[in-house]
């Protein structure tokens, strides 16, 4: 499978809800449609809530991966403004 290259990366480790989503949403709003955002985060609930909220807002969740004992990497493709 072709590796997806992110157009923008944010590291929001240390942030809790709702700021995990607030920061992710601001990042996606500043991008153009079709671009991919990579979010690195460590707040367990956000690993579920960010993908769900992004989908609710019309964005596409490409992957949610736990990369080590504490951190997740989420890839989101911007589909709409």
């Amino acid at each position: 499978m072709e590796e997806i290259i992110a157009d923008k990366r944010i590291d929001i480790r240390g942030l809790k809800c709702p700021y995990t989503f607030v920061r992710s949403k601001l990042a996606i709003e500043s991008m153009t449609s079709g671009e991919v955002l990579e979010i690195t985060m460590d707040y367990p609930e956000a690993a579920v809530s960010i993908p769900k909220s992004m989908q609710d807002h019309g964005q596409r969740v490409l992957s949610v991966d736990k990369i080590n004992g504490t951190d997740w990497v989420i890839l989101i493709r911007k589909e709409r403004d």
């Binding site: 709702p18 700021y19 601001l26 807002h57």
Partner: peptide, 27 residues
């Protein structure tokens, strides 16, 4: 045009309940 640096860290916290709304957001 919207860029994230239009807000300070404090403003992001102050207006977070607006920013979360799909009808509002950062824009």
């Amino acid at each position: 045009a919207f860029t994230e640096d239009q807000f300070t860290d404090d403003q992001i916290i102050r207006y977070s309940r607006h920013i979360i709304l799909p009808e509002v957001g950062g824009k």
